[in-house]
Design a protein around this nucleic acid. Structure first.
Length: 99
DNA sequence: GCCATGGCTAGTA
DNA sequence: GCCATGGCTAGTA
């Protein structure tokens, strides 16, 4: 496992319940601001193995990025259970979370 | 080659 | 809606 990958995994694991981070934000925190897509890949392929709170990651607009209906519903439910509030229809006001 | 991005245009209203 | 971007895992040889 490469250093950057490890940093990204740590960042994701460090997101507390009830908070969210963006793909780009995580990439930046791991020292590589333009590597948002790589964060996507890591979530996609290592969420299960490393027990990542994958549902706490959203895109830069505060939207759930998943394409699959079932998965996005799941993500929304998990976030709501943690107290994350959605504005009209599936968006999160990122300014509430300091972004 | 993959990927669940992001940011900036063109083009419509 | 388009396309430049980044870092590398999964899987074959």
């Amino acid at each position: 496992m490469q250093p950057f990958t490890m940093l990204v995994i740590e960042q994701i694991k460090a997101i507390p319940a009830g908070k969210v981070m963006t793909y780009g934000g995580i990439a930046a925190a791991a020292g590589s601001p333009r590597a948002a897509r790589q964060v996507v890949r890591i979530l996609h392929s290592m969420s299960g193995k490393y027990q990542l709170p994958w549902h706490r990651v959203v895109n830069a607009k505060g939207e759930i990025a998943l394409m699959d209906d079932e998965s996005r519903f799941m993500q929304q439910s998990l976030l709501k259970d943690e107290g994350v509030e959605f504005i009209r229809d599936g968006r999160i006001d990122l300014s509430v979370y300091g972004m």
